[in-house]
Design a protein around this nucleic acid. Sequence first.
DNA 1: GGTGTGACAATGG
DNA 2: GCCATTGCCACAC
Length: 111
Amino acid sequence: MIENKGFFEKVYYVTSLIPPGRVSTYGAIARYLGAAGSARMVGWALNNCHDSGEFIPAHRVVNRNGILTGKHHFGTANAMKQLLENENVEVEDDKVLNFAQIYWDPCRELK
DNA sequence: GGTGTGACAATGG
DNA sequence: GCCATTGCCACAC
C-alpha cells in the first residue's frame, strides 16, 4: 500500500483517487494522510508532482475556499480551469462554483 | 543535522 | 466581515 511510501507518494496516490468531476482540498488530503495541519505539504508535494513520473490530477485539488490557488503552477493560468471544465466542473474567476456539492472528502468517501 | 520553504488553514484585530 | 499574522509538518539544500 502506501504506508511504506513517502508522504509525497501518499499525496500522489490520494490525489489520483479523486474521481473526475469532483474536487478536494489540501487540508482534507493532509488530514486523511494523518498529517492534519500540514496542508502546505500537500501543495508542496503537488508542486513536485511532475517528478512522480505520472500525471497527477492536481487540478482537482483546491484550497478550502474552492479557489484554484495553484493554477499558475500548472503551466498556464487557464490550464487548470480548462481541465476542470473539461470534467463538468463549473469554474469561474479561478474558483469552483458548486464546490460544496462536488467536494470529495477522502476521509468520507474512502473511509 | 540545521535552516528554509511551500499550490494551506486557522485565528486575531 | 475583510486583511494580516501565526502555526504547521515533511522535504530539499
